Amino acid sequence: MLIAGVDEVGRGPLVGDVVTAAVILDPNNPIEGLADSKKLSEKKRLALFAEIKQKALAWSVARASVAEIDQLNILHATMLAMTRAVEGLSVRPDLVRIDGNRCPDLGDLPAEAIVKGDSKEPAISAASILAKVVRDQEMVELDARYPQYGFAGHKGYPTKAHMEALAEHGAIAEHRRSFRPVRKALGLE
């Protein structure tokens, strides 16, 4: 049975897209050391990122944009991004396992939500690694364009430093206008 694991990164930050990934691992070509991406060092994540892309039967990274997040809300935008990741797979899975407590509408594809799935299902762990590496890299790139915000350090999460930068410099186009701290910083709340 071909199982696709799906996970997201970036629901909580105030800036940037929500990034999702779907991975179908090859049972004949196992990958050692898969775990929840948040529990791995950056060096280990980067090594696994390359290995997953090389060894998986199929993988796909997708996203929902800041505009989609602001229009739909973060939950619905995440479900949309997860659907896009599954649709982007070059191999059709028999079952989709999704990290969390709800599933996007995948039509006739059977799906199940697994709470803490990124530490229980290797395919979800692999998806969490792909999504985290891609989103973290985007935050490093955003940091290079807007160093005053410190995105490389806090990855867009509402840390004290991020909130102070938002108050001092205002929001950039990549900030999620539907999130209360951003609205507050813009004087819209």
Score class of each variant (00 low, 15 high):
residue 113 A to V: 08
residue 70 D to L: 12
residue 188 L to G: 06
residue 33 G to E: 11
residue 71 Q to K: 11
residue 144 A to T: 12
residue 26 D to G: 07
residue 29 N to Q: 06
residue 170 G to Q: 05
residue 135 R to Y: 03
residue 173 A to L: 13
residue 111 A to N: 01
residue 74 I to D: 08
residue 154 H to G: 03
residue 186 L to Q: 05
residue 64 A to D: 07
residue 149 Y to N: 09
residue 5 G to F: 01
residue 189 E to N: 03
residue 141 E to Q: 15
residue 97 R to P: 01
residue 84 R to I: 07
residue 105 D to V: 07
residue 2 L to V: 02
residue 85 A to V: 08
residue 15 V to P: 02
residue 146 Y to H: 14
residue 183 R to T: 00
residue 67 A to S: 11
residue 130 L to R: 01
residue 131 A to M: 07
residue 28 N to V: 02
residue 119 S to M: 11
residue 118 D to V: 03
residue 159 T to Y: 10
residue 159 T to Q: 10
residue 62 A to S: 13
residue 186 L to K: 08
residue 94 D to Y: 08
residue 37 S to D: 04
residue 12 G to V: 14
residue 30 P to H: 14
residue 128 S to N: 04
residue 68 E to I: 12
residue 125 S to E: 12
residue 54 Q to Y: 12
residue 158 P to E: 10
residue 49 F to D: 05
residue 170 G to D: 13
residue 80 L to V: 09
residue 118 D to M: 03
residue 150 G to L: 13
residue 63 R to E: 06
residue 58 A to S: 06
residue 143 D to C: 06
residue 179 F to T: 04
residue 110 P to N: 05
residue 144 A to I: 06
residue 44 K to E: 02
residue 119 S to T: 14
residue 32 E to S: 11
residue 75 L to P: 02
residue 171 A to M: 08
residue 19 V to H: 07
residue 17 D to N: 14
residue 163 M to R: 10
residue 36 D to Q: 02
residue 104 P to W: 05
residue 29 N to V: 13
residue 65 S to W: 05
residue 152 A to Y: 11
residue 148 Q to F: 14
residue 174 E to M: 08
residue 31 I to H: 01
residue 40 L to H: 12
residue 37 S to A: 08
residue 146 Y to S: 11
residue 188 L to Y: 13
residue 60 S to C: 08
residue 87 E to P: 11
residue 125 S to R: 02
residue 37 S to H: 10
residue 77 A to W: 10
residue 163 M to G: 02
residue 126 A to D: 09
residue 9 V to C: 10
residue 53 K to Q: 15
residue 7 D to Y: 08
residue 1 M to W: 00
residue 74 I to S: 14
residue 22 A to R: 05
residue 90 S to P: 14
residue 9 V to F: 10
residue 128 S to M: 04
residue 98 I to R: 02
residue 108 D to Q: 07
residue 167 A to W: 15
residue 120 K to Y: 06
residue 92 R to D: 15
residue 95 L to R: 06
residue 169 H to C: 13
residue 54 Q to P: 01
residue 25 L to F: 07
residue 102 R to H: 06
residue 134 V to I: 02
residue 20 T to F: 12
